[in-house]
Each structure stands twice: as C-alpha cells, then as structure tokens.
Design a binder for these strands. Structure first.
Lengths: 188, 188
DNA sequence: GACAAAAATGACATTAATGACAATTTTATC
DNA sequence: GATAAAATTGTCATTAATGTCATTTTTGTC
C-alpha cells in the first residue's frame, strides 16, 4: 500500500504563512499544482508538488519535509546488534544513525530526520509500544516507517503491527531478509 | 504539524517603529531574512528570523516573542508531580510541555525548543546522567538550562551538578524555591 | 449515523508593493 | 564646528494581491 501524503489548503496555508484563500488562488492561477475532490471541490496538494513549489519560490522548507529517503535511525540497546544492523544498511547505501537509549532516539528523530527507523521492542527503559504510539500520533513523524526487530514472542510482534509498526522481524534475523524488508518499506 | 509563525512587512514595521517601506529595504539589503510570495511578491518573515534580527540590532524584544524564550520542558515520570511543576511554571507565564518518558522528552527537545528543562534524575528507563551528557555534548542544546529535581541522596545531586546540571533541587520541594530557581536560571 | 471540524464561496475590506521624490540623518572633509 | 555629500528613511497615490466575514456543504471521526 503506497501512501501518498497530501495536504489540504488549510495545512498548506499554515506552512506558507498565508490565508487558505490565497492558497486556493495560487492553485487557480496554476502556480501550485493540486487536484480536486469530486464532492465540494476540495483541493488536495501532493507533498511532492508542495515541496517543489516551496523550492521554486525560495520558501523555507519545513523540517518535516526534509527527510531523505535514505536516512535510517537504528534504535537498539546492544552495541553489537546495532553495529550489525548498521553495517548491513550502510552497505545498501543508507545514511545510518544509531541511538542506544530512548532520549537520544527521540532527539535524533529531528536531528537525523530519518525516513525509517528500526526499533528494538524491548530496550531497558524504553517501551517500544510507547514509541510506536508517539510516532503514529505525531503528524510530523507519522509517515516514518518503523521496522520492529525483536526477540519477543510472536504475540508481541503481532501487537506491534496492530499498534503501527510498518513491518516486524524476529531476532535473530537474516541479513538478506533485513535488506529485503528495508527495500520494501522504502519503496512505497 | 509545525506551526510556522510569520510576519508581514507591515507587522514587522510596527514592532520596529519604522515605515514598512524601510522593512522592505532591510530585506532587500539582506539585513533581515525573508521570503517572497509568488503573487504580488509579498514578503513573509519567519518569527525566528525576526527575533534574531531584533537581537542582532539590540532592539527591545516585544513580549509576545519573549514567550519563545520562556519555554520549559518538564521531564518527569509521575503525572501528578509533572502537573504540579507545570502549574507553578505556567503561573509564572511560562510555556510548559511535559514528557513522561525518555523518547518523547528527546523528541520534544526539538519540537518544543525549550530554553530550560526540569529533569527527574531517576525515571524508570531514563538515565538522567545520560541525558545531561547528551545535552552538554550537543552544540544545538548545550545552552539549555537543566534543573535537576530529584529525591535521590545529596551525593547524586552533587554528581548531577558536576555533570552539567545548571541547578538541583531536592524532592519534596517548595513552590517558592522552584520559582526562584527558575527565575535565576532564566535571567542569565 | 451523528456530530464536530474544516473547506469552498462570493463580496468586500485591508494591506502590501511600487516608483518617485522629499525629508531626515549620518558621514566625510576642511 | 560648519558644510556638503551620501545614505537612509518617510510620504504619496495607484494597483493588485491578500485577508475577512458569514454561510453552506463536505469531510473526518467516533
């Protein structure tokens, strides 16, 4: 399921610091690409098109649009495991950052701006489900893919999927499997 | 979604006590950062950029922008304690956010952009000393004041001071004492 | 299905840009 | 210190974009 992020006129207006009426006029004049819903004719702006528009007009790009598709954040308590995952991902050309605790993981969400994170469900002092909840309820982050990697029993992995994980993987895992999952998640 | 507050030239002119024509000239000369709308070429000035400009030129900072510099993040496991602290701080006119776990605390460091944080040293799964280390080693955050609030023995508080806390306070604490410490930390 | 939140709409009021020029302030020179 | 030159800022009228308002309808959410 490829989810395309779109904006309403109201949202675009906030980002641009103008009235939504103005956004509509820009759309009508063809300066900003958008499409219409059949009902009332609501406008929807694809995130891609919006960013293009922002760049064309030298607008500041909001942080949440800056995420690069190759950026990954590895949230993992064990240094060995983290390095192992990072090695595989880097070999695939990804820009990898590692967080060994909840606080730095949270801080890196904005400093590294990952498009995807791999999440160890059970880190000492970090509730993986809490992280999932936080990400899914935060509009700035909710489009981030989350790959849960865990040694927990299957039931926990099931629950992770229900609570917002994009994919899950059991530990120990196969490197090839890891690469496949990553590729799949980032391709849509 | 990040709410981007922006000013028009007219608004900026009022704050600076000059004609809007002058604001435009400052923008044209590159003294004041701004971007242009595609329509009439209206200028929009991001609030952040405007405050930077005001500070650079020793303009008095209007109150509504001061709020920006009185943001506090309360990192505290117990909801009751967090609410109590937040209540006191809000009464002092601060803009308070609360984080109950390490991950959201880290995430809020960038979304709330606090000038100060109050930190519970011993939260389940959050190593307060680790947080101090992270903040002090991160150029983006190192100017943030950290008030450690803890029920730990004095030795731990001493250590917190050594490791970068701006001030410490024992639990239970006195509201008046809290206000005093906060005022002191924010005044320099 | 019901309710709240948000978008479209048209008419109208505000406000910003612009260029030219006047007034004021700063800087340089003697 | 006085004076001229240069730079900055304010004023004005015009044009066009943007904001506002109240209302209607759709969409999102539970």
């Amino acid at each position: 399921m490829s989810e395309v992020r779109v904006l309403t006129t109201g949202e675009a207006a906030k980002y641009c610091g103008v009235n939504f009426r103005t956004i509509i006029r820009w759309i009508e004049r063809g300066r900003l690409k958008a499409y219409k819903l059949p009902g009332r004719g609501d406008h929807r702006i694809r995130e891609d098109d919006f960013v293009v528009f922002l760049k064309e007009n030298d607008f500041p790009i909001p942080e949440e649009f800056e995420a690069q598709s190759s950026r990954v954040l590895v949230v993992e308590d064990s240094k060995e495991m983290a390095s192992a995952i990072a090695r595989v991902l880097r070999r695939e050309g990804m820009d990898v950052a590692i967080a060994h605790d909840g606080f730095s993981a949270g801080a890196m969400m904005s400093s590294h701006k990952p498009r995807m994170i791999t999440l160890d469900l059970k880190m000492p002092g970090l509730d993986g489900f809490g992280v999932l909840e936080f990400i899914r309820n935060n509009s700035e982050y909710k489009s981030i893919k989350v790959l849960v990697i865990s040694a927990e029993p299957p039931a926990a992995l099931e629950r992770a999927l229900v609570e917002g994980a994009s994919a899950v993987m059991e530990k120990p895992f196969d490197n090839i499997e890891l690469v496949e999952k990553i590729q799949e998640l980032l391709s849509n």
